[in-house]
Every structure is written in structure tokens, then in C-alpha cells.
Amino acid sequence: MVKDRKIVCRCEDLTEEEIIHAIEEGYDDIESLKRYTGATTGFCQGKGCLMHILRILAQKTGKSVDEIGITTQRPPVNPVPLYILMEGEEE
């Protein structure tokens, strides 16, 4: 039976249930929840999962999406291979 397994983060293979469990464990702000579950730290860097995580966090805590905020957005926007970066000029 897999009907309750709602995948919300495909990179790290996280289900909605696992996110809820982490929130119940006390990791109930967006930065702690990210680190504890690994959500938003995989190959997509949050592009696929951040909105799901926000929705679940808002539903569980009763806070608005604005109150929760989003995780610090870190460069690069998309993955960049080292062989391309190597071509850059050092300061």
C-alpha cells in the first residue's frame, strides 16, 4: 500500500508524512526544517519542493506563508560544472 506516500521532495525522497514528523519534533521554522529533513538541499536546490514545504509548514503551524518566509537562496541559480568555472579569471 503506497496511497499515503505523498512525495514532496524528489531529490531527497521525502514524503509529506516525514516533513510533518520533523515539524512535530520541533523543527518548525523553515531554516531548521530544511536542515533536519534535507529538503531544498538536493539537486533541485528547492525549486521542486520549497512550495510544498511552505504549504505543509503553514498548515501545521497556522502561520502565514509571509510569516514563515523562505530559506536563504544561495548561488548558483542552476548547477554549474567545475570545468566551466575553471575558465574564469581569478581576482
Partner: peptide
């Protein structure tokens, strides 16, 4: 990122195809 790419790849050349996800 530029400095890291150069120095890491000099040490382990096979890393050159790997992408930086986050800094």
C-alpha cells in the same frame, strides 16, 4: 568558485565534470 574549481580539479582531475549545487 573559480579558485576552488581550479585547485580542486588540479588535485583530483576527475571532479571537473561535477556541478556546484550550492555555495
Amino acid at each position: 568558485l573559480i579558485k576552488y574549481a581550479k585547485r580542486a580539479v588540479e588535485m583530483i582531475p576527475s571532479l571537473k565534470g561535477l556541478s556546484v549545487l550550492r555555495q
